[in-house]
C-alpha cells in the first residue's frame, strides 16, 4: 500500500487518486492538497471586464481631479481644464461600466438604498455619488465660464474625495475570500493609488501643451515607477500566493503592464518635454495602468479557481495552531 513518501510526491484527491491536473498543466506543482475532485472551494468572481475598466477609469478620474486642483491653484489653466474634463469623462465612463456589470442594471439605484460601513462597495457608491456630480459642476463651471466660486468649491470637494475614489477599490477586492486579493490587502491600496496617479499623469501629459506639463510628467513617471514597485513588493510579500500573478493570463497581463509602465516612464523622462515624446509616454503609461488592473482581476480569478490556494494556507495555519488549541 502507499506510504508517506508516495504521499509527498503527488497531490491526492479525496479518494486517494492522483491529481490529473498536475500532470497536464504546470499550473499546480506537487503539493499535497486534498480536495473534492479538484473542485474549487470558492466561487469564481462573476465580475466581467467592466470592473477592471472601472478600476482604471475611477483611478484616472481621481488622479485627474487632484491634478486639476493643483493646476488651478498654480495658474496652469490649460492643464486644469484638461484634467477637469478628463476627470468628468472618466468618472462618467466608469459609472457606466459599473452599471453595465450589474446582473440587474435597471436596479443600479439600489446601491444607495442603504449605507453600510462593512461593505466597501456601499462606501464607494456613496463617495461616488458625491464625487461624480462634483467633477461635473467643476468642469461645467470652467467650460461655460459661469459660477466661478461654485466651480472652485466643487473642485475642492472632488479633490478631497479623489484619494478615497482612487484607493477604496483596493479595499473592495481585498475584502473577499479570494486568496490573491485578500492576501495582498496591505499592498493593493498602494498599487491602486500609484496606478491612479500614473494614468492621470499620463492623460494630462498626452493632452497638455509642453509649457504646462511639468506636474503631469512628474506624475506619469513617478506613478508608473510606483506601480511597478508596488506590484513587485506585493508579489514578494505574497510568497506562494503570488503564483496566480505570475502564471497564465494574469502573468502575461502583469508582465505587459510592467513593460508598458517602464517604457512609458523612460520616454517621459527622456522625451517628455517634447510634444511627440509626451504623447508616446502618456499612451504607454496609461496602457500600463489599464493592463495592471486587468492583471489583478485575472490573478484573483485564477486564485479562486484552484483549491490549492485556499486549502494549503488554511491547512498550514490549522496544523501550526492545533497543538496549542488556543486559536
Amino acid at each position: 500500500m502507499s506510504t508517506t513518501e508516495e504521499r509527498s510526491v503527488a497531490a491526492t484527491n479525496a479518494d486517494g487518486s492522483e491529481r490529473r491536473r498536475s500532470a497536464g498543466r504546470a499550473l499546480v506543482p506537487d503539493v499535497e492538497v486534498r480536495t473534492y475532485y479538484d473542485r474549487s472551494v470558492l466561487k469564481r468572481p462573476t465580475w466581467k471586464h467592466w470592473i477592471a475598466e472601472y478600476f482604471f477609469l475611477g483611478g484616472l478620474s481621481a488622479g485627474s481631479s487632484l491634478l486639476a486642483f493643483g493646476a488651478s491653484r498654480t495658474g496652469r489653466r490649460a492643464l486644469a481644464r484638461r484634467s477637469r474634463l478628463v476627470a468628468l469623462a472618466a468618472v462618467g465612463g466608469g459609472g457606466a461600466a459599473l452599471v453595465a456589470d450589474l446582473g440587474r442594471p435597471e436596479r443600479f439605484a439600489n446601491m444607495l438604498r442603504v449605507a453600510k460601513v462593512t461593505s466597501p462597495m456601499s462606501v464607494g457608491s456613496w463617495v461616488l455619488a458625491a464625487y461624480g456630480p462634483a467633477t461635473g459642476v467643476a468642469a461645467a463651471a470652467d467650460v461655460l465660464g459661469v459660477f466661478p466660486r461654485l466651480g472652485a468649491a466643487a473642485e475642492g470637494v472632488a479633490a478631497a474625495l479623489a484619494p478615497v475614489v482612487a484607493t477604496y477599490t483596493a479595499v473592495l477586492v481585498a475584502d473577499t475570500s479570494v486568496p490573491a486579493w485578500h492576501g495582498a490587502r496591505g499592498e493593493l491600496p498602494y498599487l491602486f493609488a500609484a496606478s491612479a496617479g500614473a494614468s492621470a499623469g499620463a492623460a494630462a501629459l498626452a493632452l497638455t501643451p509642453v509649457a504646462e506639463n511639468g506636474p503631469a510628467r512628474c506624475w506619469a513617471v513617478a506613478g508608473a515607477l510606483g506601480e511597478v514597485a508596488a506590484s513587485t513588493i506585493m508579489e514578494r510579500r505574497l510568497g506562494e500566493l503570488a503564483e496566480p500573478y505570475h502564471t497564465g493570463r494574469a502573468g502575461i497581463l502583469s508582465k505587459a503592464a510592467s513593460a508598458c509602465a517602464l517604457a512609458g516612464a523612460a520616454v517621459g523622462l527622456l522625451r517628455g518635454r517634447r510634444r511627440r515624446g509626451a504623447i508616446i509616454s502618456g499612451a504607454l503609461v496609461a496602457a500600463g495602468s489599464l493592463l495592471e488592473r486587468f492583471a489583478v482581476l485575472e490573478a484573483g480569478r485564477q486564485s479562486a479557481a484552484d483549491p490549492k490556494y485556499v486549502v494549503k494556507p488554511q491547512r498550514e495555519r490549522l496544523d501550526a495552531t492545533r497543538p496549542s488549541e488556543s486559536e
Partner: peptide
C-alpha cells in the same frame, strides 16, 4: 477539504479596519 470545505475559514471583513487603514495611508 475532502468535502470541499475550507479547513480554517475566516470571514474577510474581520480584517476590514486594517484594510481601510492601509487605504488611508495610500490615499494620503
Amino acid at each position: 477539504e475532502v468535502y470541499r470545505l475550507p479547513p480554517d475559514p475566516v470571514v474577510p471583513t474581520r480584517d476590514l479596519p486594517a484594510m481601510w487603514g492601509a487605504a488611508a495611508k495610500a490615499a494620503t
